[in-house]
């Protein structure tokens, strides 16, 4: 089964680190979609949706419209909700996923 999937336990650990660590759940203030968010800095945002996230009202509206390209950029309402969560201190900013060096380390 080893096609191009990670083959060593260390690589799997890296993958876990980069894809799953430090994610914080944020609910959209408009349509209650729930996503997992990480912010390494003010201008960086990582948003993971999953099957339990619910349906985004903005995307549903865009999909109903004729024409247009089939991929939707980030929903502005959700981004506003994430900004609000940052202001409230729910989503911490900074420090990516790398282990931080400690003074006694």
């Amino acid at each position: 089964m080893a096609y191009i999937v990670p083959s060593s336990p260390e690589t799997l650990a890296d993958r876990e680190l980069y894809t799953r660590s430090r994610l914080v759940e944020v609910a959209c203030l408009d349509c209650l979609v729930r996503v997992k968010v990480r912010k390494n800095s003010d201008h960086h945002t990582s948003i993971q949706w999953n099957q339990e996230a619910g349906d985004c009202a903005t995307f549903a509206e865009l999909s109903r419209r004729e024409g247009g390209r089939p991929v939707h950029q980030a929903c502005p309402r959700l981004l506003a909700s994430i900004e609000a969560a940052v202001r409230e201190g729910v989503v911490p900013i900074g420090a990516g996923v790398d282990p931080i060096e400690t003074s006694d380390g």
């Binding site: 089964m1 096609y3 201008h43 960086h44 949706w49 999953n50």
Partner: peptide, 23 residues
């Protein structure tokens, strides 16, 4: 990876929506 596993083995996270903005 979804294109390299049998259709029945596609895991939800391979196809779930993911968004990223690079700083």
């Amino acid at each position: 990876e979804q294109f390299y596993v049998d259709k029945a083995d596609i895991e939800p996270e391979m196809v779930e929506r993911f968004e990223f903005e690079v700083d």
